[in-house]
Nucleic acid binder design. Structure first.
Lengths: 96, 96
DNA sequence: ATAAACATGTTTATGTCATAAACAATATGA
DNA sequence: TCATATTGTTTATGACATAAACATGTTTAT
């Protein structure tokens, strides 16, 4: 029942929300994440970059209806990290 | 299933560990928290101060075996905040 | 008795990070 | 063509987490 270290990348409200959404979706574009998380565009852009940098999500830039479109999806590595984070966090919360 | 804001004071590994320990104990002194959390003294001191400042814990300074001793206990307000935090976090984790 | 080592915390300094504001590029509509 | 909207990126800054340095007193060794 010790306290395991928490992945700093996931221990952040916005990044965690992004990951939480992506584990339940095939993929999500920038605007969907924007709407679901309530973040600002700037912040969302930065945090997507960090998650991509870590290999937790894949990011594909394309176009949709003539406009730029950024499509995000969680990777296998990201799923593993998310699950590990959740498991590590539980003892802190008195769960499990 | 929206993402509620997370209490920034509790969304920190060390402060959360402190609170997690205190909800399960009558009280704990500085050294016990030090040992159980694995934190440095400086960091522990700072985070205890912040939790006290917020009224989440009470801090009583006394002496034990001739040495300074800092005894911490969670307050009712702290318990409420912790429970709220846990409840708010669950949707992020896909729990409940 | 004095110095060295130990015990318990606090304060300060600094590098990192989260965030919003400013910017860029393109598209659409009047 | 000018203004406005859409989609995102870059930058600037203020807050924060952390460790190092410091302060105060105690015990032990000599």
């Amino acid at each position: 029942m010790g306290f395991a270290p928490l992945d700093p990348l996931l221990h952040n409200q916005l990044r965690l929300a992004i990951m939480s959404l992506l584990v339940g979706l095939e993929s999500a574009d920038f605007n969907l994440l924007l709407e679901k998380t309530g973040a600002t565009r700037g912040n969302l852009s930065v945090q997507i970059s960090k998650l991509k940098e870590a290999g937790y999500i894949s990011v594909v830039k394309g176009y949709k209806d003539n406009y730029p479109n950024t499509e995000c999806a969680i990777t296998y590595h990201g799923i593993r990290a998310f699950e590990t984070y959740v498991a590590s966090l539980k003892p802190y919360l008195g769960i499990g």
